[in-house]
């Protein structure tokens, strides 16, 4: 049990768990920090389907848009994407868990929105000076 133990085994284990926890928290912090740093920069939402970028949408403060992306084959279905106030999100989908809808609207590069059943991923990229290099994610 988790209590001050004298034996080495449990000490090692607690240390390992704490190290993993710390590393994860640090990674999370760095990720969020990096995402918030680029807050003012221009953003582009890149929509990937089956690993291919199918659409790039500049996220400008004023734009509002709603459109639907259909997927076919063994992952058939639809996702309705919504853009508003410089944010992008999935407003409706016919996937079973609807986690992509629950992920809400994003405007930072910290987390991509993914609809795993439809193999659809929305990722935010900071538009910097060298967009060709930025696009190389493979």
């Amino acid at each position: 049990m988790i209590k001050p133990c004298k034996d080495k085994k449990s000490l090692c284990l607690i240390a390992t768990v704490l190290v993993i926890l710390l590393l994860a928290a640090a990674a999370l912090g760095i990720q969020l920090h990096r995402a918030s740093q680029g807050e003012t920069a221009a953003k582009t939402a890149v929509i990937y389907q089956d690993g291919e970028p199918i659409r790039r949408i500049p996220l400008l403060p004023g734009t509002t848009d709603t459109f639907t992306i259909e997927s076919s084959g063994d992952n058939a279905g639809f996702n309705t994407l919504q853009i508003a106030d410089g944010k992008i999100g999935i407003s409706d989908a016919d996937c079973p868990d609807k986690l992509c809808v629950k992920m809400g609207m994003i405007s930072s590069a910290a987390y991509p929105i993914s609809c795993l059943p439809h193999k659809l991923v929305i990722q935010i990229e900071d538009t910097k000076e060298e967009p060709p290099v930025d696009a190389l994610t493979q």
Partner: peptide, 13 residues
């Protein structure tokens, strides 16, 4: 499945 290495972004969480 998604062929996107950026899925690793979920790893810390």
């Amino acid at each position: 499945v998604t062929e996107l290495p950026s899925m690793l972004a979920y790893l810390p969480v």
